[in-house]
């Protein structure tokens, strides 16, 4: 992932890991937006958001945290 250093990589991943919990609290409390769709439409939609999003988001977030944290 071309992070700055091994140390920075570990710290970034952990910071992401910690911050994602409060970031998702509102979603957990309010619930995912519900649409009256058939099961397959619902699945496609949610997989796209949470499955694919879940793969991509941390790559971006960890990279950003890696850039932001001050030490190498």
């Amino acid at each position: 992932m071309q992070l700055k250093s091994p140390r920075s990589a570990i710290i970034s991943a952990l910071i992401y890991n910690a911050l994602i919990i409060p970031a998702l609290i509102p979603l957990a409390l309010k619930g995912v937006q519900f649409r009256p769709l058939t099961a397959n439409q619902l699945l496609r939609r949610n997989i796209l958001i949470f499955g694919l999003g879940g793969v991509i988001a941390p790559f971006i977030a960890i990279k950003i945290i890696d850039i932001l944290i001050p030490f190498a």
Binding site: T38, A39, N40, L43, R44, I47, G51
Partner: peptide
């Protein structure tokens, strides 16, 4: 029913 998760689709195979 139409509310049931279908396991015989391409999408599910990918999952």
């Amino acid at each position: 029913t139409s509310g049931t998760l279908r396991t015989d689709t391409g999408l599910f195979t990918g999952i």
